[in-house]
């Protein structure tokens, strides 16, 4: 069983804001969905998803890229050719 405290913890880990009024609804739905996922318990653990996959490498060559002003054009705040982000510290 997932509790409301667990859902708040997951929201914090995921950096997803939720409001108090949604907590009860999300908690109930998470429990229903995770109960359904329990069907995976019958699957034997295997070697994982790696089989058949291989890395695709290419030479690291300089190729034209998009102009910086076009990249910055969709940003809310920029400064001296950089994105401006909220403070981290």
């Amino acid at each position: 069983m997932i509790s409301e405290r667990d859902v708040l913890h997951i929201a914090e880990l995921a950096d997803i804001g939720i409001i108090r009024e949604e907590l009860d609804e999300f908690t109930g739905q998470f429990n229903d969905i995770l109960d359904y996922f329990d069907i995976l318990d019958q699957v034997e653990a295997g070697a994982g998803a790696e089989t058949g996959l291989y890395n695709v490498f290419r030479d690291d060559e300089v190729v034209p890229s998009l102009p910086p002003d076009e990249i910055l054009g969709n940003a809310g705040e920029t400064e001296d050719g950089f994105f401006r982000a909220p403070r981290v510290m």
Binding site: A11, I71, F83, A85, P86, R87
Partner: peptide
């Protein structure tokens, strides 16, 4: 930060992001 309605740059990162 890079697209869409902007975050509030005066707030702390996690608060603004959430």
């Amino acid at each position: 930060v890079r697209y869409g309605p902007p975050a509030d740059p005066k707030k702390q990162w996690h608060e603004s992001f959430q």
